[in-house]
Every structure is written in C-alpha cells, then in structure tokens.
Simulated scan of single mutants.
Amino acid sequence: MGVREAVTSRSGADGSRALRWRWRTATIAAGWAFPADWALAEVDDVCRAVLGEGDPCRELYRLGGARAEAGAGLAETLLDLAALHAVLAQPPGSTGVVPADVDAIPARMLRSTALGWGDVMSRQAASCSADDPLSGLATPAYLRTRLREVYAEARALGRQEHVLVLVSLDLSRTSGWSRVVAMTLLADALREVFDAGETVASIGPSVACVLLRRDRHLARAVANLRVLTADRLAVDPHVAPTGPVGVRLEELPPTCEDAAALIARLGRSEH
C-alpha cells in the first residue's frame, strides 16, 4: 500500500491535509524558492482529485495555470509536480527527503500541468490587461510601466521622490476562496486610502504595493491602512486566520531594472 492508499484510508479532509503537508515539504526540500506562495486553492483541489477515483488531469491543468498567474516559471511548476508524484509513490511510513524527479512524472500529469501553465502565459501575453480581474488592482506589468515613468521623472528632477508601500497578508493558514476574499478586502482598503492617483498594484498571491510620491501625509495614510484593513478582515470569519496585515515602506533602488527585480522578489517572498 502506497502513500495514496494510506492517506485515502483516513477521513477525506484528514487525508487531503496529510497529502498537502507531505507534498509541500517535498517541494520545498526540492528547492522551491518562495514557500509563502506555494499554497493555492488549486493545491487543495489536486489533493482531493488524486485521492479520489477520477482523473486528476483537469485539476492539474488548473494548478498549472494558477502557478503561472502567481509568477512561478515552468521549471519550478514541474518541480512541484514531481514532488507530488514522488510523495504519491512513496511507501507508507517512509521518512526523510523525498527526491523529486521531473523525468519520472507520468506523461498525462506532465502534459496537463504544462498546458495549464502555457495557456495562462499565452493569454497574459495576448491581453496585457492593466487590471487584475479578481482584485481590480493594477497588474505587475502595469506597475513596471509606471516605474519606468517614475524613474524618467527622477532623472529629469535629479532626485527620486517616489516610494513603495508594501502590503502583505499571511495566507498560509487559509485555503480556497478564503484567500481570494482576503485579497479582495485588502484591495478595497487600499483603494479607499490611496485614492488620489497613486498606483495600487497586486504583485503576488498575498502581496500588494502602492507606488506614490513621498509627502507629509504618508505616515498617516500607512497608519490608516493598517486600521482599515484590520477592520475589513474582521468582518468575515472565514478570513480571520490571515493574521495582522504587514505594511512597510520600501525605498526604490537606484535603477528601474533593480526596481522591477525587487517587485518580482517581494511579490513571492512576502507572507
């Protein structure tokens, strides 16, 4: 009896949680760079699907797409899939590091996940939408455009007048639509506090940021954001496990290229 049968023998929810925990452990051990962004609603769907009797390819396709939307590359996405496959193939009671071998992934699993990832990347390249469809915040692509404009302005002025306000939620204890609801509530608070032309963008599954000009009202706006976000999250009991919102100022680096790299890193490394 393998891990699949061992965890299936538990109750449905317990078995899914056990598989999820072992999968995450194996993925991080294999080199997943940003543990905070691993947990997605689609992960839970895949766990339920592989423990059931049906074909999990549809759920794997959606997971591949969700990984692409969260900023994971194809190699990283397939490494995660390899970790899942390795965990499922382990005998019950096994301990230690589970080796993730991409070359060992069954063709159907590999194809479904890669197609999901590729289809999302193709749509993103074709549409280049300026707004995130769920939160309504600006996309990372639009933020990069604004950064180029800000740096051009700074060169003309001889000084940098803009700063980033980084806002993050710890969604590690939430799953499914609770994560979406939490980020939607955060987006509402951001738009209410920063409503004078600032660029408010989603840069990761649990991270947003504001690009704005530094002025004497900045400290008050940050304090208001902390209070308002806490109030919004407290209204919905399903998002209570998100914990306190993290808000901090982030200085812009010397070049626009450095700023783009900073945004990409912050979007995946924050809780």
Score class of each variant (00 low, 15 high):
4 R>E: 12
5 E>F: 09
5 E>H: 15
9 S>T: 06
11 S>L: 10
11 S>D: 11
12 G>H: 05
15 G>N: 01
18 A>Y: 08
19 L>W: 03
19 L>Y: 10
28 I>L: 07
29 A>C: 01
29 A>S: 09
32 W>L: 08
32 W>H: 13
37 D>P: 01
37 D>W: 02
38 W>D: 03
41 A>N: 06
48 R>L: 14
57 C>D: 10
60 L>M: 15
66 A>I: 07
66 A>L: 11
66 A>S: 15
69 E>V: 10
74 L>I: 11
80 D>L: 00
83 A>D: 03
83 A>H: 09
88 L>D: 01
88 L>N: 04
88 L>T: 04
89 A>W: 01
91 P>Q: 04
96 G>I: 03
96 G>W: 04
103 D>F: 07
110 L>H: 15
110 L>M: 14
111 R>H: 13
118 G>D: 13
121 M>R: 14
126 A>D: 03
130 A>N: 12
134 L>E: 15
135 S>D: 06
140 P>A: 08
146 R>M: 13
146 R>H: 07
148 R>Q: 12
151 Y>T: 12
153 E>V: 04
167 V>M: 02
173 R>H: 12
174 T>G: 06
178 S>G: 01
182 A>Q: 06
184 T>D: 10
184 T>L: 12
184 T>G: 13
185 L>E: 08
185 L>K: 10
186 L>G: 00
189 A>K: 03
195 D>F: 03
200 V>Y: 00
208 A>G: 06
209 C>I: 04
216 R>K: 13
217 H>M: 02
218 L>Y: 05
218 L>H: 01
223 A>S: 14
225 L>W: 01
225 L>K: 06
237 P>M: 02
237 P>G: 05
238 H>D: 07
240 A>E: 10
242 T>S: 14
244 P>Q: 15
246 G>R: 06
249 L>Y: 03
250 E>F: 09
251 E>K: 10
253 P>M: 09
255 T>V: 03
260 A>N: 14
260 A>E: 14
262 L>I: 02
267 G>A: 08
269 S>T: 12
